[in-house]
Structure formats: structure tokens, C-alpha cells
Design a protein around this nucleic acid. Structure first.
Lengths: 133, 133
DNA sequence: CTTGACCCTATAGTTACTATAGCCCCCATC
DNA sequence: GATGGGGGCTATAGTAACTATAGGGTCAAG
């Protein structure tokens, strides 16, 4: 057994993902089928770890699995004609920048609310207003 | 009929939400039951619009409906003792700041990729690396 | 050689929608 | 005032992205 390989439980812990979710991603082709041990255990390496970490972060940022698939495809389309890649990257960048803007507004209001708490009571809360206009 | 009130179709268009999704939010108590016309049509106003806009933005930012429920509750807990509110606001702020960091990294790599496209071919892509460490 | 932690497949359940069926309201127009 | 088309209503079933459970095999430690 190579020290560079690890089982699904380790991968799950490192990425804070449920084991069943990892197998689910494999079943829908988002993660490649890894090699197996003689006892039929899946064996993962660093590249699986990176790919899964990427997927999980994207999911927590509100991208759908199809979005993630596209982003991963961008990675794999190196050294190819890039009109399509460019178009996709632009559209994803726009979405990402919009999300950053929204989150920045939300963070500002949360900080405001935390500051308002100094006196023991909440004065005025604009969390809803931050993202509702 | 007051001009300040509008039907579910209008609300759906304004918030880019499916009509069925609005009714679903009502059914799980995330949106209040609106008044009805004599013909049993739901009638919404600006406050419904704001609340739904907030919910939809939060969802697109990767918060679960339970997170959204908590954030909305923060808004409604004005003038109450604020230990709990403060704790929640801090924890949400932390999550939001983390999301901003991740998105900023992703945006940087997307911009890099877009620039690489100048020559007609993609040189090196680090989108995956941006969110996998 | 058994025990306990971990892995396997397969299937059913949950969350957050989304689509469809079958019917009602409203109002413009014939 | 009948009628037809664009909405709205409820109720139920289906989809996406997980999550839990059952029933069983693997493997290192004692």
C-alpha cells in the first residue's frame, strides 16, 4: 500500500463530506472511478482530494452541480481553442462578482448588528434591507 | 383594488422565482400567508417582495432555508435581549466572510483564465487549484 | 480466530424545489 | 351574455442533491 493513497473515510474527513456523497458524485460522473484494492476498497490520491474539495466549496457558494461541471471542464480544456472557454469564464466571473457584492452587503449589515448589541438591546436591524433591493 | 398590491405572477416576475416556489415557501412558513381577493387570489405587497428577494439571494449564495430562517429571525428579534442574536450574527458573519474569500480566489483565477485566452489558446489554468487547498 | 472499525452495494427517505393535472377567476370582445 | 385566453387555485407526482439504513464483506489488532 502506497502512502500516497487513502481510503474513502480519510477523503471524507479531509473534505468534510459524507462517504455516501462521495460515492454519489462518482455515480453521476463528477468524480472519476478510483482504483480499488484487492478487497474492493476505493483508493484515492491527492488529485481526487483537490477535485472533491473544489466541488464542495463551489456547492457551498451556491453553484449547482452543473455549474461545477462546467467550471471543471474549463480546467480540462487547456490547449484548446478558447472562444467557448472564454465565454463561459466571463459568464461565471460575472456570477461570482455578483455573489461577492451580495455577500459584502450582508457582511456589512451583520457587523452593524453585532455593534448594535453593545448596549444589551438591538437597536435597528437592516439585514433584510441589505439584500432585498 | 389598491395599486400597492399585486398578484403572485407579478411577484414571481419581480423576484425571478417560480410561482410554485412562492407557494412552497408559504407552505413551509417562510413567507406569511398573504390576504386574498374575493376570488381567492393571493395579494402581495412591498414587504413580501423584500422578504422573498432576500430569501432568493441567500439561497443563491449557498445558505440553506434553515440558515435563511435564522437570518430572518435576527431581523425580527429587535428590541430583545441580544446574547443569542449576537452569537448567531457572529457565526453567520464568519460564514459570509469565508464565502467572500473563496469567491475572491475563484474570481481571480477566472480573470487569469480570461487573460490567458488572448493568444487564442489557453496556457495554464488554475481554477481548480484556487479552491482546492 | 474473533471483534470492532471501516468498506461495499442497493434502496429508501429528505430538502428544496419543479412540473402537471384539473379546475376556477376575470375581463376583453364578439 | 357567451366565450376564450391568460392568469390564479389546490393537490399530487417528479427531480436534484444529498442522507440514512439494511445487510453484508474486509482487515488489523489482540
Amino acid at each position: 500500500m502506497n502512502a500516497d493513497y487513502f481510503t474513502i473515510g480519510t477523503l471524507a474527513k479531509e473534505t468534510e463530506t459524507k462517504i455516501v456523497t462521495i460515492r454519489y458524485y462518482e455515480s453521476i460522473g463528477l468524480l472519476p472511478e478510483p482504483p480499488r484494492t484487492e478487497g474492493n476498497y476505493r483508493l484515492y490520491n491527492r488529485s481526487h482530494l483537490m477535485r472533491l474539495t473544489f466541488i464542495r466549496r463551489c456547492r457551498s457558494l451556491g453553484f449547482t452541480l452543473n455549474h461545477v461541471r462546467e467550471l471543471l471542464a474549463l480546467t480540462e480544456k487547456q490547449d484548446q481553442d478558447c472562444n467557448e472557454v472564454d465565454r463561459l469564464a466571463h459568464s461565471h466571473l460575472e456570477a461570482v462578482e455578483h455573489k461577492i457584492q451580495d455577500l459584502t452587503k450582508l457582511a456589512k449589515e451583520l457587523r452593524h448588528q453585532i455593534n448594535s448589541c453593545q448596549g444589551g438591546r438591538i437597536a435597528d436591524c437592516h439585514i433584510l434591507e441589505a439584500l432585498s433591493s
